[in-house]
């Protein structure tokens, strides 16, 4: 049966989707380019026309995931009326995204471990840096508006908040059977953390 010829962009996309399924199912090391090609219904040489190697393919996939995740979170944050409410929304959005795209986030985290082997992957590191920067700007803005207490070190606090956001991804990526599927309890912890620096003691709006 003749395989349908797809335009390059569509072919790339279908390979990325196949890689995501493969990685989420088998982990990074057990998933070979041959597996990914088979999953995409193509031969390995075709895969190599679109990507240099497995690392290149995985890095593209990670980049795509981060873009989707960031866009989703930012869109929801923008609807909020103040920075602290925005941060709470960001945590909820992150939670919702991992629920909806569990295998996407799994594929992302499974593919992280290639550390320090000749120029390691930037995406996971850059993502954390950007997230951290965004959170600390929002806290500074809340302080400027008199909504967060001045005695809080925005940069240090930002890391606590990022840690609380990040564990949701990790739990979901590992697929742990933990009480983490309880969104209300999670958001209660987020609320507590943000309220502790709010000048009114709670999150408005």
């Amino acid at each position: 049966m003749a395989r349908k010829r797809l335009p390059a962009e569509k072919r790339r996309e279908s390979i990325l989707k196949a890689a995501e399924r493969c990685l989420a199912r088998r982990g990074y090391y057990s998933c070979t380019t041959a597996d990914i090609a088979a999953e995409a219904g193509i031969t390995e040489p075709i895969l190599y026309q679109h990507f240099e190697d497995k690392r290149d393919l995985v890095e593209c996939l990670r980049h795509r995931t981060v873009k989707e995740l960031s866009r989703y979170v930012v869109m929801r944050v923008l609807k909020q009326s103040n920075p602290l409410a925005g941060l709470r929304e960001a945590a909820e959005a992150a939670f919702d995204f991992t629920r909806r795209h569990r295998s996407k986030m799994r594929a992302y985290y499974y593919s992280i471990p290639e550390l320090g082997r000749g120029g390691f992957h930037r995406t996971p590191v850059d993502r954390l840096h950007h997230l951290y920067a965004a959170v600390s700007y929002m806290i500074e803005e809340a302080q400027r508006r008199g909504e967060a207490t001045d005695d809080v070190n925005a940069m240090e606090f930002a890391w606590s908040f990022v840690a609380l956001m990040e564990i949701v991804y990790i739990a979901n990526a590992l697929g742990l059977e933990v009480p983490f599927n309880d969104k209300r309890t999670y958001l209660d912890l987020v609320d507590r953390l943000l309220s502790s620096i709010s000048t009114t003691g709670r999150i408005e709006g």
Partner: peptide
């Protein structure tokens, strides 16, 4: 530390999944 990070990519394997779950 490296091994800990490396193991996460193997979390897809079922036996690892059960193993790490019980450990945690």
């Amino acid at each position: 530390l490296r091994i800990v990070v490396n193991t996460v990519s193997e979390a897809a394997a079922r036996e690892f999944q059960e193993n790490i779950e019980s450990l945690l």
